[in-house]
Amino acid sequence: MDQNVVYESFDKMEAFMKDVFIKVGIPAADAAVCAEVLIESDKRGIDSHGVGRFKPIYIDRIKEGIQFPVTNFEVVKDGLATAVVDGHDGMGQVVGKKAMQMAIDKAKKFGMGMVVARNSTHYGIAGYYATMATKAGMIGLTGTNARPSIAPTFGVENMLGTNPLTVGIPSDEDFPFVLDCATSVSQRGKIEHYDRIGKKMPQGWVIDNQGNSETDPAKALDGLTKGTYALAPLGGLGDDTAGYKGYGYATVVEILSAALQQGAFLKALNGLDLSGKKVPYHLGHFFIAIDINAFTELDAFKKTVGDILRELRASRKMPGHDRIYTAGEKEYLAWLDRKDRGVPLNESLKKTVKQLKEEYKLDSYTFNF
């Protein structure tokens, strides 16, 4: 751990982000939602999508006029168990929370609910929305497309977003099963985190237009933006390590995030118009909620899920390893480790927080740096 890292309480950082969001024009109730989603990422130890993305992905984009602080959440089409909504380039967290709640409400009536969204923006960690469903005693699925990052198998051009396919399933344990990961080997948020802490990336995460690996995160981020670099799909490059599987799943998410709601896709999500001017990203999401009680008794289901997870963790270990994890477990352990300490802030994040505090005259906040 960086010796210069300090910890600030989750409540303080959440309140600070909410107040900055309000300063840039987000209504108070929506600002609370946006801050809640971001701080949840830090609580789970997902440092790539929390406070670290607060300024560059949200505040800066609002100031640039490519994301709108007031979210016009429009229901375009409302069926019994389905709906299509339009976020009109407002806050993705607001769109995401409202859309998943719609899916949950529909599932309560009809057993399943699905809502798709178009013209949205980055909605934070997908696991937040899947966990909304698990808290309601349901299975939750969500995915989103994103600006072009992943090269298709045997290609070098960034075409697909990192496109997470995320599933949350309730269990009888202290935490639900939540599989929340990109369909690329890594994703931009993690590369941004490596750049902030000055750490080289592993070989095979990012390739140039000749298929050569790049390990410098700053160069990778610049090349991804310019379209000269690309992320490898989950599984890696080529067929030998089954990279075509990650490429295939990324394509599934792209289709579900664009075709059902007739939204933008692939290169249309690069945030630039034909003249090279920055424009909104027009992202698409999908949200599915499945009411377990429509199939079986909830407690029995949760016990079966727990039994499966416990048997997996109890299975024989590889030499040199004394523990097997199941999805959602590491995030729960991160919460136990951080709940009394708070959000870790390195030098880069401390500088950002200071800058925002001064810029928006939030003098009532005092930090440990």
Rank of each mutant, 00 (worst) to 15 (best):
A250Q: 01
V85T: 13
L312P: 11
P233Y: 02
F287A: 08
T241Q: 13
G96C: 03
G137A: 11
V115S: 10
T304W: 13
G52L: 05
S257D: 11
Y244Q: 14
A258G: 12
I255C: 14
V51C: 07
G87R: 07
P148S: 07
E297K: 14
Y244I: 03
N368D: 12
K43D: 09
T183L: 04
G111H: 11
E254L: 01
D172Q: 05
V185N: 07
R310C: 03
K190S: 09
F175C: 05
F68N: 15
L141F: 15
I66V: 14
P176H: 02
I22M: 14
R44P: 02
N293E: 15
K12C: 11
E173K: 14
S120C: 02
C34G: 05
S184D: 01
Q210K: 14
I26R: 03
V33G: 02
I169C: 10
P170V: 03
L80W: 12
D30A: 02
P152H: 00
K97N: 12
E8Q: 15
D291Y: 03
R118Y: 08
G65I: 05
V95H: 08
G223L: 04
F68T: 12
L336S: 12
K18R: 15
K357S: 14
Q262F: 05
E173Y: 08
Y128I: 02
A99E: 10
G198N: 12
V253K: 12
Y7Q: 13
D78M: 00
G50F: 01
T225K: 15
A31P: 05
D322E: 07
L312T: 05
G161L: 04
V353A: 09
R118L: 06
L356D: 11
K106L: 02
N158H: 00
L221T: 03
V70C: 08
C34W: 09
C181E: 02
R310M: 10
D78H: 09
D340W: 10
F369T: 06
A289L: 01
N212L: 03
Y247T: 01
D78N: 12
P164C: 00
I66K: 10
S275Q: 15
V5Y: 10
R44C: 07
C34P: 02
T134F: 11
T326C: 11
R323C: 02
D299P: 10
N158Y: 00
H285N: 15
S275R: 14
K106F: 05
I59V: 13
G306R: 04
T366L: 09
K361H: 15
S184N: 00
M102I: 11
S186H: 04
A182T: 00
F110V: 06
L298V: 02
M132P: 01
A151I: 00
E329R: 09
L224M: 11
V5G: 08
R61C: 07
G52M: 05
V85H: 09
N145P: 01
T304C: 13
V156G: 01
R338F: 05
G127Y: 09
L221I: 08
S171G: 09
T82F: 14
F21I: 00
L336E: 13
P148E: 05
E358S: 14
A220G: 07
P164L: 01
F301H: 06
S48K: 04
T225Y: 13
I39S: 10
S315M: 02
M138H: 06
